[in-house]
Design a protein around this nucleic acid. Structure first.
Length: 1062
RNA sequence: GGGCCCGUAGCAUAGCCAGGUGGUGCACCCGGCUGAUAACCGGGAGGUCAUGCGUUCGAAUCGCAUCGGGCCCA
C-alpha cells in the first residue's frame, strides 16, 4: 500500500494501467482463468473499416465491453472475438477517390486485380487503426485475431450459405426494379439510400386518347426522364374522374382529371374556364387507350399499346392519374407484372439512354429532362419546381434512379413465418425492440436483393453454363477447385472469375459477374467467427450466440441480415438475446454530422477527462436503448464523481500506512472475505451501516444488470460514492483516523474502508476498468490476484444487510439536513455548538432512530442535547388566521364577526381542539359558530432564538441561544480552524507538534478561554504549549514564530503564532 | 404516408408498466467548511410534466388526436 499524493489525473492513471495490462498480459490471464467456465458466446457486430471511430462506435464497444467484463466476473468463458466488415462499396468509393477515378471504366482500365489490392490494403490498415482506438477505450476483446469478412474461410461461410439457399429453393434470379446508383453503376440496397431534399421539375402532362380529337388524360410526374418509358396510366377503381371541357385563351380542349382535383389542376394550366361534361369511375375508365406524346421521337413507343389500368396505390392528389413506367418504378413494375404490361427500360447502368431511347440515346437521364419538356410541346399542361425528398447513393451522394435489372434474390417471404416465430423466441432488451419494431419490419420484408455489380466483395459463387441454362452454386473453394481442376486460394475477384467449370452438357460454366451485397457478408458472422463450415467443432459447441448488442439502426441491418441468413442455413435465429442501443446525438438531439459541425469525437472527451469518465458518462446518461444527447456538463459531473471517489480512496492511505495497517488476511496471505462477517456484530454501527449499504447496492445492481439496465447500475454506484461513502461515512469516520493510540475503533474503520473500497472496485470494474484497477492494485494484499478483473462479481451478501439500520440512518441523515437548514435560518454556523435541538414527531420509527443513534445525531448537529417529543411541542405557539373564502359562504353576513373571533382566539388552543374533535365552537356572546379546519390556517410562532426546519415525518427546532460555555467552545473551534490552516500553510505533517502563541486583546474572550478550552485547542492541533497574552508586549521577545497571523474572529481580533516543535 | 421510441425547470434526467403531495444532478443565487483543499458540503429559487380532448373521485402516469425529435420503412 502506498500513499497517493497526486490528485485525480485520469490520463496518467489510465496510461499506467494500460501499460500494466500489456506487460502482465492481464487480459489473456483473465480469459485463461475462465477457460473451464461455462461458455458465453458473444458475437461482435463488425464495424465497417472506413475510418476512425466516432462517438456511436465508441458507445457500442463500451457497452459490449462493460457487459463482457461483467460476465467474465461470473467465471464465464466469454467468447469475445472482435470482427470487422471489410468489403463493399464504401471502400471502393474511397479508393476510387484516392485514385481520382470517376466511374467503372476507370477501374476496368486500372485493372480489377490492382484495384482489389488497393481496397484490401485500405480495409486492413483501417482495421488496425480501429483496433488501436478500441483498445485505448479499455475494450477487452480479441483484437489479435478478429474475424474478417475478407478472409477466405469467411468468404466460404457466405458461399456455403448461398448454396443452402439454392438447395432449399430460396435463391432466385429475376428482373426487378432496384435502387440504382448511376455513378457506381450498381444496384444498391434500400438501406444504402439516403434521403434529402432535392429540387426537381413538377409537371402535368396530357396524354392524347386514341381515336379522339383533342381529348387527353392528365398525369403528373417529377421525373420527366421516365416518360420515354411510359406504358400505362393507373387510376383508382372507385375514384370519380371528370371529363372536363377546359378553355384557355379561347381554345377548348377535353381533359380527364379526378373530379375533386379539377380546379387545382386547371389553375396550374392557367385555364380560364371549364365545365364538367361527364363523370366516370376509374373502373369504367380502365381499358382506354392512348398515345405517348413522345411517340414520334422514340420508335419503340409507337409499338407499345398504352392503356388505362386500375391500381391500389393511386391517391387523390395531383391529378388522380399516375404515369406508369414498369422499367423505372417498383410499384409500376409489380403492376406491370399483374396487368401484363411491357417492361420498357431504355436506360443503361450509367444512367444514359440506350438506342431504344430514340432521339435521347446517349444522353444522361437527368440531363434529358429539359429536352423532354421541350419535346412535349403543347402536351405539357403545366410546369413548376418542387422540393421533395429524393433518394441518393449513401456513399457517393448521387441521386439514384430506379431501373429494372437482372438480380439475385433471397425469397424472404418464403421464410417469413419462421423468422417471425424466431423473433418471438428471442429475448429482446427492451422488449419492444423485438416484439414491435423488429417484428413489424420483418412482417413487411420483401425479397432481399443480394447481388451487386461491383468488385470489392464476396463473389457470388454461381457458375452458369453458356450453352445450356444450368447453374451450379459452390459452397467451398475446395468444391470449386475439385470441379474446375483449379487451385484457387484467394476467392476474390478477379482471380475467381478466371475459373471455369465444365458443364455436363459439354459447355463451359462461367461465374456470374456479381458480388454479394455487403450486408450478406456480416450476416454470416455467428458461424463464420467459429470457423464454420471449414470446421464444425466450435460451431456445435457454441452456436447460436448467447448475446449480441447493436444500435437501433441495425434492426433493418445486422439483426435482420443475420436472422435471414441463419433461417436459410439452420432454420433458426443465430442469437438468443439482443440488446438494442440508441444513437449518439448532439446536445440538441440532432444527429452528429460533419456538415452541421456538431461532431464530438471520443478522442476529444478522452483528452479532457479520460476513458473511464467517458465510459461512465455514456453508460449512466440514459437507458441503453435511448438516444444519447451528448452534453459536456454531464461529462464533467461524472468527472467530479470520479474525483471524489479518488479522494475518498486516497484520504485514509496516509493513516493506514502510519499505523502499519494491513487488511485482514487468511493463512494463505489473501484478503479474508469472511473477516467482516465474523466481526460484524462488534463493529460500530456506522461501519455496519456502510457495509450494509454497499451490499444492498450490490444486490440491487446485480438484478439491474440482468436486465441490462446499465444506466441504473452506474447511477446507483455514483450515488453510493457521493451520498453514502463521501458525504456521510467518510465525514463521520474521519476523526477515528487520527486517533493517536491504537484502538479497535480505528482498526474497524480501516477494515471497513478497505472492505468498501475493494467491493466498490469490483462493482465498478466493468464500467471504469482503469481507475478501479489502479485503486485495487494499491489496496490488494501481496498474495491477492494481481488484477481487479480477476475477482468475482459481488452479488451482495445478505448476511451483511441490515435494512432496519439503513432506515434508521436515513432518519439521522434527514435530521442532519434539517438541522443545517434551521441553523442557516438562525445564522448559527455548524462550528458553534448549540444547547438543545428539539425533534417533534409522531412517527415511532423516527423516535426509534433517535433512541438508538442519539450520539451520532448529536455529533452531527453539534448540539449538547436532543429532545425528541411525540405529538406537539408545548413551547410552540400558533396563530389562527381566518380563511374568508370559506367563511363567507358558511356564515354570510356574520363573516366579519367570525373573522374577529378567530383572530382574537388563542391559536394554539384552537388548533389543539380542531385536531381532537374536528371542529371548534366560538361564540360572540349571542351566537355560536361551529368552525372546521377549512375556515382557518395556522401560522407557527417559534420562541425567540429557536429556528425550525422540516424533515420527513418530523419537525426540527434548533435553539441558537448562546451560553458562556457554548460561546467558549465556539471561539475555541474558530481558533482551532485557523491554527489548522496555519499548519497547512507551513506544510506540516499530520503528526508534527507545534508551539502556539495567541494575543487576544478582548478581555471577554480571554476570560472565556479557560484552561480546559485551551487544552482542547492544544489537543486538536497537536500543540505542545499554548500561551495567551493580552497584548503583543506580553510575548516573550526572544521567541520568533515561524508563522504569525492576525485574524478576525466574529469581529474579535486575534493574533496567532505557531512554530514547529523540535 | 406507415411502424417503433422519445418529449418532465435554462440543460440533463427519475417517476409512467401496476393512476393518489413531481424527485435528482448540472448551471444559477445565498451560505458553510478548511486534517479530501486548484477540493468539498449545505440551502434557495426555478415546473402549462409538449399541446388538446377523453376515462377517472383523482392523470406526468391510462386512451385518442395533434405538434416536435430520433431510428427505420415507403
Amino acid at each position: 500500500m502506498q500513499e497517493v499524493t497526486s490528485s485525480f489525473t485520469p490520463r496518467d492513471i489510465e496510461a499506467s494501467v494500460q501499460k500494466f495490462w500489456t506487460q502482465e498480459g492481464i487480459y489473456a490471464r483473465v480469459q485463461e482463468q475462465n477457460r473451464d467456465g461455462k461458455t458465453w458466446f458473444f458475437v461482435d457486430g463488425p464495424p465497417y473499416t472506413t475510418g476512425h471511430i466516432h462517438l456511436g462506435t465508441a458507445w457500442n464497444k463500451i457497452l459490449k465491453d462493460s457487459i463482457l467484463r461483467y460476465k467474465r466476473m461470473h467465471g464465464l468463458h466469454v467468447i469475445d472475438r472482435a470482427g470487422y466488415d471489410m468489403h463493399g462499396l464504401p471502400i471502393e468509393v474511397r479508393v476510387e477517390h484516392e485514385l481520382g477515378f470517376e466511374n467503372k471504366k476507370d477501374i476496368e482500365a486500372y485493372g480489377i486485380g490492382a484495384f482489389i489490392e488497393r481496397c484490401k490494403q485500405f480495409a486492413l490498415s483501417h482495421k488496425d487503426i480501429m483496433s488501436e482506438q478500441f483498445k485505448a477505450l479499455g475494450v477487452w476483446m480479441n483484437f489479435d485475431d478478429p474475424y474478417q469478412t475478407v478472409m477466405p474461410e469467411y468468404i466460404e461461410a457466405a458461399w456455403w450459405t448461398l448454396k443452402q439457399a439454392d438447395e432449399k429453393g430460396l435463391l432466385d434470379r429475376g428482373h426487378r426494379v432496384v435502387n440504382w446508383c448511376p455513378r457506381c453503376e450498381t444496384a444498391i440496397a434500400d438501406s444504402e439510400v439516403e434521403y434529402w431534399d432535392e429540387q426537381d421539375p413538377s409537371i402535368f402532362v396530357k396524354f392524347p386518347i386514341q381515336g379522339l380529337l383533342n381529348e387527353y388524360l392528365v398525369i403528373w410526374t417529377t421525373t420527366p426522364w421516365t416518360l420515354p418509358a411510359n406504358v400505362a396510366v393507373a387510376v383508382d377503381k372507385d375514384f370519380i374522374y371528370a371529363r372536363v371541357e377546359a378553355v384557355k385563351e379561347g381554345k377548348k380542349e377535353i381533359l380527364w382529371i379526378a373530379k375533386d382535383l379539377v380546379e387545382p389542376v386547371l389553375k396550374r394550366g392557367k385555364y380560364q374556364d371549364y365545365s364538367i361534361l361527364l363523370e366516370k369511375t376509374g373502373e369504367e375508365l380502365a381499358g382506354t387507350t392512348y398515345d405517348s406524346p413522345l411517340a414520334h421521337l422514340i420508335p419503340r413507343q409507337k409499338e407499345i399499346v398504352h392503356k388505362v389500368v386500375t391500381a391500389g396505390f393511386v391517391e387523390m392528389d395531383n391529378t388522380g392519374m399516375v404515369h406508369i413506367a414498369p422499367g423505372h418504378g417498383w410499384d409500376d413494375y409489380l403492376l406491370g407484372v399483374e396487368k401484363g404490361l411491357d417492361v420498357f427500360c431504355p436506360v443503361d447502368g450509367a444512367g444514359y439512354y440506350t438506342e431504344e431511347g430514340g432521339i435521347y440515346a446517349g444522353q444522361f437521364v437527368r440531363d434529358a429532362n429539359e429536352k423532354i419538356l421541350d419535346d412535349l410541346g403543347h402536351h405539357l399542361l403545366g410546369r413548376q419546381k418542387i422540393t421533395h425528398r429524393y433518394g441518393h447513393c449513401w456513399r457517393c451522394k448521387t441521386p439514384i434512379i430506379y431501373r429494372a435489372t437482372e438480380q439475385w434474390f433471397i425469397s424472404v417471404p418464403k421464410m417469413k413465418e419462421k423468422m417471425l416465430a424466431e423473433i418471438k423466441a428471442t429475448s429482446w432488451y427492451p422488449d419492444w425492440a423485438g416484439s414491435a419494431r423488429f417484428y413489424d419490419f420483418v412482417s413487411d420484408a420483401r425479397d432481399w436483393c443480394i447481388s451487386r455489380q461491383r468488385y470489392w466483395g464476396i463473389p457470388i459463387p454461381v457458375w452458369q453454363c453458356s450453352s445450356c441454362s444450368a447453374h451450379r452454386v459452390f459452397g467451398t473453394v475446395a468444391e470449386l477447385n475439385a470441379a474446375a481442376g483449379s487451385n484457387l486460394t484467394d476467392p476474390h475477384r478477379p482471380y475467381v472469375d478466371e475459373i471455369t467449370v465444365p458443364c455436363s452438357c459439354g459447355g463451359t460454366m462461367k461465374r456470374v459477374e456479381d458480388i454479394f451485397d455487403v450486408w450478406f457478408d456480416s450476416a454470416m458472422a455467428s458461424w463464420a467467427t467459429l470457423g464454420f463450415p471449414r470446421s464444425d467443432a466450435l460451431f456445435h459447441e457454441m452456436w447460436p450466440a448467447d448475446f449480441i448488442t447493436e444500435g437501433q439502426d441495425q434492426t433493418r441491418g445486422w439483426f435482420y441480415s443475420q436472422l435471414g441468413a441463419s433461417t436459410i442455413a439452420f432454420n433458426r435465429s443465430p442469437y438468443k438475446s439482443v440488446l438494442m442501443h440508441g444513437f449518439a446525438l448532439d446536445a440538441d438531439g440532432r444527429k452528429m454530422s460533419k456538415s452541421l459541425g456538431n461532431v464530438v469525437t471520443p478522442e476529444e472527451v478522452v483528452q479532457k477527462f479520460g476513458v473511464d469518465v467517458l465510459r461512465l458518462y455514456i453508460l449512466s446518461s440514459n437507458a441503453p436503448w435511448e438516444d444519447l444527447k451528448f452534453n459536456w456538463d454531464g461529462v464533467s459531473t461524472v468527472n467530479r464523481t470520479m474525483n471524489i471517489l479518488w479522494n475518498v480512496y486516497r484520504f485514509p492511505l496516509p493513516y493506514m500506512i502510519l499505523d502499519g495497517f494491513s487488511p485482514a488476511q487468511t493463512s494463505d496471505g489473501t484478503y479474508d472475505d469472511e473477516y467482516i462477517v465474523r466481526s460484524y456484530r462488534e463493529m460500530p454501527e456506522i461501519d455496519r451501516w456502510i457495509i450494509s449499504r454497499i451490499n444492498s447496492i450490490a444486490k440491487q445492481i446485480s438484478a439491474d444488470m440482468e436486465e441490462y439496465h446499465l444506466h441504473r447500475v452506474t447511477r446507483l454506484l455514483m450515488n453510493f460514492i457521493l451520498e453514502d461513502l463521501s458525504r456521510w461515512y467518510v465525514q463521520i469516520v474521519r476523526p477515528r483516523m487520527w486517533l493517536e493510540e491504537d484502538s479497535p475503533d480505528k482498526k474497524f474503520a480501516y477494515e471497513t474502508i478497505a472492505y468498501c473500497l475493494r467491493t466498490l472496485c469490483r462493482l465498478l470494474a466493468p464500467f471504469t476498468p482503469h481507475i478501479t484497477e489502479a485503486m485495487y492494485g494499491n489496496l490488494r494484499l501481496p498474495e491477492d490476484p494481481v488484477s481487479v478483473h480477476m475477482l468475482k462479481w459481488p452479488a451482495g451478501d445478505i448476511r451483511l444487510i441490515d435494512e432496519n439500520l439503513e432506515r434508521r440512518m436515513d432518519v439521522v441523515r434527514k435530521f442532519d439536513e434539517a438541522v443545517a437548514n434551521a441553523r442557516q435560518a438562525g445564522k448559527r454556523k455548524l462550528r458553534w455548538p448549540v444547547q438543545n435541538v428539539i425533534v417533534v414527531t409522531s412517527s415511532e420509527s423516527v423516535i426509534e432512530a433517535f433512541r438508538s443513534m442519539e450520539d451520532l445525531a448529536k455529533d452531527r448537529a453539534n448540539t449538547r442535547n436532543i429532545e425528541v417529543i411525540k405529538g406537539s411541542w408545548d413551547r410552540m405557539r400558533f396563530n389562527a388566521e381566518p380563511v374568508m373564502k370559506k367563511i363567507g359562504p358558511s356564515f354570510g353576513k356574520k363573516g366579519p364577526v367570525v373573522k374577529g373571533l378567530i383572530e382574537a382566539a388563542d391559536g394554539s388552543a384552537l388548533r389543539k381542539q380542531l385536531k381532537e374533535s374536528g371542529s371548534v365552537t366560538l361564540s360572540d356572546g349571542s351566537e355560536e359558530f361551529v368552525l372546521t379546519a377549512e375556515h382557518m390556517t395556522f401560522s407557527q410562532h417559534l420562541p425567540e432564538g429557536i429556528f425550525g426546519a422540516e424533515m420527513t415525518d418530523a419537525s426540527v427546532y434548533v435553539d441558537t441561544k448562546l451560553t458562556e460555555d457554548l460561546e467558549a467552545e465556539g471561539y475555541s473551534r474558530e481558533i482551532i480552524r485557523r491554527l489548522q490552516e496555519m499548519r497547512k500553510q507551513l506544510d506540516l505533517n499530520v503528526d508534527d507538534n507545534i508551539l502556539i502563541d495567541a494575543v487576544i486583546e478582548d478581555e471577554h474572550l480571554r476570560k472565556l478561554l479557560s484552561a480546559s478550552w485551551q487544552d482542547l485547542i492544544k489537543q486538536e492541533v497537536r500543540g505542545k504549549t499554548l500561551k495567551v497574552h493580552a497584548s503583543v508586549s506580553g510575548r516573550d521577545g526572544s521567541v520568533l514564530f515561524q508563522l504569525d497571523r492576525d485574524w478576525d474572529i466574529e469581529g474579535v481580533k486575534v493574533t496567532l503564532g505557531i512554530s514547529l516543535c523540535s
